[in-house]
Design a protein around this nucleic acid. Structure first.
Lengths: 204, 204
DNA sequence: GTCTATAGCCAGATAGAC
DNA sequence: GTCTATCTGGCTATAGAC
């Protein structure tokens, strides 16, 4: 194994371990030792590769956001008709979150603690842009296909209906008194039901 | 001022300060010194009244949940017709969260870190019960007033549409590129628009 | 690049005077 | 009940050997 390979392996092992721990416990709750254990490496290597906990955290956060952003973009910048877009997004997004259950919560939580992070994200090349979505909604209203609704409100609703059930899973499981298997099935059903709900709400 | 009065004042000052700090920074991010400063008292008094950070946190968490629970109950256990219930809940709930903007996030976040807390909450006297809501939805479906929908899914949707925009405020502000004033106005508009959205989605 | 050992700091908690 | 002073442990970070 070459030195370069070791480099890449160790560095990405650290990043992957850090993702798991940070997303589970947050910046404040995570421990460098815990990340080292998760990556099966020595704690001082974390500092060798990423200098500080803060910088390691920022690497994780950026990586997490750049995984979520394309998901949002798929609703926003896509040429398909509005209803198809809503169906595809709901279906794809829920599949995505089932694979990364802690990711949306992590991003939203850390953005709440550091709202100034948003400024950095806005500058990123692939930050989602809502203009296309907005004009598409406005066109469909003008054409009499859907009821009048502010595109921003519709977008908030779409994101809320898809994200929230995963972020609030423990609370909702308790409230609905269902076990993990039943809850997973509810989420599976939402892949189509959420899109139906939204389309029924707006179609004329 | 009697000793008793001082007791009550100090103890409740601590609890109020702890609410503000814990809800803002979470269990891990909060510092006992910070809470003491916020309450304008000596740090060791925190331990005198609440023994440990953990116990103080639990007092705050219980108090926060017992503020949120009645809000949820108002959708669930109320005799008004379903559509009125949805309108009232949306209107009241958004007003409530405007006053306590960090509360839902705090509860959901800490429940995610400690899912076993839910067990304790379930045992509480005033834990929300969904049975009345469920049978009401099923009746309305049977009477042909609304489209078929699982009551659990409808409840998830109602809560999601009302809670999420506050939990994800920093992300949504960035995504929609709006300032605080505009965002507050969007939330104000949602007091009626969310109810319309939900009712349109389900009514036949 | 990877390890051990440790510096240096900070937070929660307690002892004890008043 | 409230204060000051201090203990104790744990955590980030670094120094330095290999």
């Amino acid at each position: 194994m070459t030195t370069d390979t070791k480099n890449l392996n160790t560095e990405s092992e650290i990043l992957n371990a850090a993702k798991r721990i940070f997303q589970l416990k947050g910046m404040d709750g995570a421990r460098m030792q815990e990340i080292a254990d998760e990556a099966n490496i020595n704690k001082s290597l974390l500092h060798y590769y990423y200098r500080s906990k803060q910088l390691l955290f920022e690497a994780v956060f950026k990586s997490a956001f750049s995984l979520l952003a394309p998901q949002l973009n798929s609703v926003l910048n896509d040429d398909s008709p509005l209803f198809d877009k809503i169906r595809n997004f709901t279906n794809n997004y829920i599949s995505f979150v089932v694979k990364h259950p802690y990711l949306p919560n992590f991003i939203i939580q850390e953005l709440n603690k550091n709202p100034e992070f948003v400024k950095n994200l806005l500058a990123e090349r692939h930050f989602p842009n809502i203009e296309k979505f907005s004009s598409q909604v406005d066109e469909q209203i003008a054409e009499g296909v859907i009821k009048p609704i502010k595109p921003t409100q519709l977008l908030i609703n779409i994101i809320a209906l898809n994200l929230f059930p995963f972020m609030a899973a423990p609370l909702l499981k308790g409230l609905l008194k269902v076990d993990d298997t039943t809850y997973r099935q509810l989420m599976e059903d939402r892949k189509t039901e959420v899109a139906d709900f939204i389309i029924n709400a707006i179609k004329l």
